[in-house]
Design a binder for these strands. Structure first.
Length: 295
DNA sequence: GTGATAACCTGGGTGC
DNA sequence: TGCACCCAGGTTATCA
């Protein structure tokens, strides 16, 4: 499933191939891809424009085009962007014909992927401001800011990490990996963290994402990089999908699988500390007056 | 405002 | 072998 490391891997591969090239023609083969916009409007907005840069925001890939337009692509669960020959591929949802004769193809088995065109400037800013929070690898994610975002939240840490408008780019795999690295139980209420926990969690998030990047992402199911090759992060998982195996910390714990927020969640019950909600600070001598027995 | 859950979607695995 | 059913998960909409 493409999360931040997978999308960033694709971005790094596409950048030298696309920047300076002109997208001569776009053919959208699945109208779901461009919803709510009509396929023709996206085809018209992109065709004939030169690529100026290839960026990323959270799990969105941003192809910046001349004329202050940006093609924002989300791979969702099974989307792939492949460049080169790519003959005989199944589930092709869009074709981008480049001016050097090659094609970039968007394939997507489950058809959840999205491609929209935004005007650079306010429209782009507003779109992402409403959806995405801190970028974990940019240095803006500090323990203090994470603590502030989690303040008073009762939601489990696992669900909190998956919420993109707090911290962008973390999905099911790297949430599990980050929590294991931080030694924090996925069911701990987010608002129960203290500074020391937030410090461990930031370290865990960054460590997990960088490991994913180092291994070209994880190819559990359908993910392929822009060259059509699989990543190897799935061979390096510390906890995700290791149900029934001994914890790698050798602490006697056995990795368990539970469902949190409808998502499979893997953790070690021995070394991942379950935090409890802190009681609200009461004001005054008695926060809750005793019942007046006299009636 | 917050948290939980369903829906979207399709290939693969499982059970009968 | 073929069929029905369930599961996976990122995001959004809906509900409590």
């Amino acid at each position: 499933m493409p999360e931040l490391p997978e999308v960033e891997t694709v971005r790094r591969q596409l950048e030298p191939e696309l920047v300076g090239r002109r997208i001569e023609r776009v053919t959208v083969l699945d109208e779901r891809l461009t919803r709510p916009e009509a396929p023709r409007s996206v085809e018209k907005a992109v065709s004939g424009r030169k690529v100026e840069a290839v960026g990323r925001r959270g799990k969105y890939l941003l192809i910046e085009l001349e004329g202050e337009r940006t093609l924002a692509i989300h791979l969702r669960m099974t989307g792939n962007l492949l460049i080169g020959e790519n003959g005989g591929l199944k589930h092709v949802r869009a074709r981008f014909a480049l001016d050097d004769g090659r094609q970039m193809l968007f394939t997507d088995i489950r058809r959840f992927g999205q491609a929209i065109v935004l005007d650079r400037g306010d429209q782009l800013e507003d779109y992402f401001a409403a959806r995405l929070g801190l970028e974990p690898l940019s240095g803006e994610l500090t323990p203090e800011r994470l603590l502030e975002l989690a303040k008073d939240r009762k939601a489990p840490l696992k669900s909190f990490l998956l919420t993109q408008d707090r911290v962008a780019g973390i999905g099911n795999i790297y949430a599990d990996e980050a929590l294991w690295r931080a030694r924090l139980h996925p069911l701990s209420p987010a608002g129960s963290m203290k500074l020391e926990h937030a410090e461990r969690l930031v370290e865990g998030i960054v460590g997990a994402l960088e490991a994913g990047l180092d291994h070209g992402g994880a190819s559990i199911d359908d993910y392929l990089d822009a060259r059509g090759e699989r990543g190897s992060m799935q061979d390096e998982f510390l906890v995700h999908t290791r149900e029934g195996e001994a914890c790698l910390r050798d602490d006697g714990g056995e990795i368990q699988r539970i469902v949190v927020g409808g998502r499979s969640t893997y953790f070690c019950p021995v070394c991942q500390e379950r935090l409890r909600r802190r009681p609200r600070r009461r004001t005054g001598a008695r926060a809750r007056p005793k019942r007046d027995r006299a009636g």
